[in-house]
């Protein structure tokens, strides 16, 4: 019994340091390598280049261009969150906290804008 209880005797902030090392490494096993990080950044840069080009292409005026911009921005957003912030590899709790904030804020403010007939 003492073995189990001793694990939780660490106090809050002090417990951060007490996470066993093997657990720590296992945690980061799947993270991208530095080379992959560079490739991700390259992809992000290319998407940004496309984004900047979209408004100047006449064929993409109107809803098509707007949707394209939202999709491209969303891809960049998702890549940074999933790969740079490592959310893809994290616990469900963190994903939940992040997504609840994101989805909740979007839902509430879309309703606000709808009541103003602004969108």
């Amino acid at each position: 019994m003492t073995i189990e209880t001793s694990e939780v005797e660490e106090l809050g902030e002090a417990a951060d340091a007490a996470v066993p090392d093997d657990h720590h490494e296992e945690d980061h096993l799947d993270h991208p390598t530095p080379k992959q990080y560079w490739l991700i950044a390259l992809a992000l840069g290319l998407i940004t280049a496309v984004e900047i080009a979209v408004p100047s292409i006449d064929a993409l005026d109107g809803p098509v261009g707007v949707s394209l911009l939202f999709i491209l921005g969303g891809i960049k957003f998702g890549m940074v969150v999933a790969l740079f912030m490592h959310l893809k590899f994290e616990k469900p709790l963190y994903k939940m906290l992040f997504l609840v904030g994101l989805a909740g804020a979007m839902a509430m403010f879309i309703v606000v804008l709808l009541t103003f007939q602004a969108i």
């Binding site: 906290l97 904030g101 994101l102 804020a105 979007m106």
Partner: peptide, 12 residues
């Protein structure tokens, strides 16, 4: 992560 979740409402 809790703080970042709440920041969405701030910037939203």
């Amino acid at each position: 992560w809790v703080f970042l979740g709440s920041e969405f409402v701030f910037f939203g």
